[in-house]
Design a protein around this nucleic acid. Sequence first.
DNA 1: CGGTTATATACCTGTCAAGGCATGTTACGG
DNA 2: CCGTAACATGCCTTGACAGGTATATAACCG
Lengths: 102, 102
Amino acid sequence: MDVLEVLAEPARRRIVDALLTREASVSDLVSALGMSQPAISKHLRVLREAGVVTARAQAQQRIYRLEPGPFRELDAWLSPYRKLWNLHLDALEEHLRQGEEP
Amino acid sequence: MDVLEVLAEPARRRIVDALLTREASVSDLVSALGMSQPAISKHLRVLREAGVVTARAQAQQRIYRLEPGPFRELDAWLSPYRKLWNLHLDALEEHLRQGEEP
DNA sequence: CGGTTATATACCTGTCAAGGCATGTTACGG
DNA sequence: CCGTAACATGCCTTGACAGGTATATAACCG
């Protein structure tokens, strides 16, 4: 899953977090995150190519917004692992104690 | 969130995926993933320090098992973003109901 | 004990990506 | 047009990290 690698980067998670409440221009994010503008733009490019964000032009500004798709993908990837915290508490320990898995 | 960075690595995701169905020893994973044993051990170390897996000793073997905690964390981190695909559907619905095209 | 199996660690190397600076690009404003 | 504002891109350096080989450690077997 590519989304995981994209969101692994801390700066990118801060951007995504900032975009959660409202969409923002590049300079908004620059002043919000205290990073250089090229750095922000590069991260936005990565996020854009992964489909995490989309941009629309408004005057000379580019307004970036979150897209739900990749987060749904991540949710879907996580899905099989949810059985872990159902299984874990009661069943697994007894299961191991009886040892019935060849 | 540290878990994201740990699970961003493809080889580590393959390990985690292999451990989803059943626990496994190091050599099991070596033959399953076709990587060198030291490489597997290093990934397991990273996963262990992140709390994604735990190991128990059985003879000379170390049996590795998934732990639910980090996956719950990931699920919790993802939670605020779930509103995205609710908002998306709401906006779409209203947009369809108004049926406007400039 | 000595040898063997199973895993961990040390060390080295190549790769890749993040971040800074400088510069290109594009759309407005006068 | 020309200058400027808002972003994007190119180039460069540096640091982290993955993977391999060689070696240490630990438990088991004879």
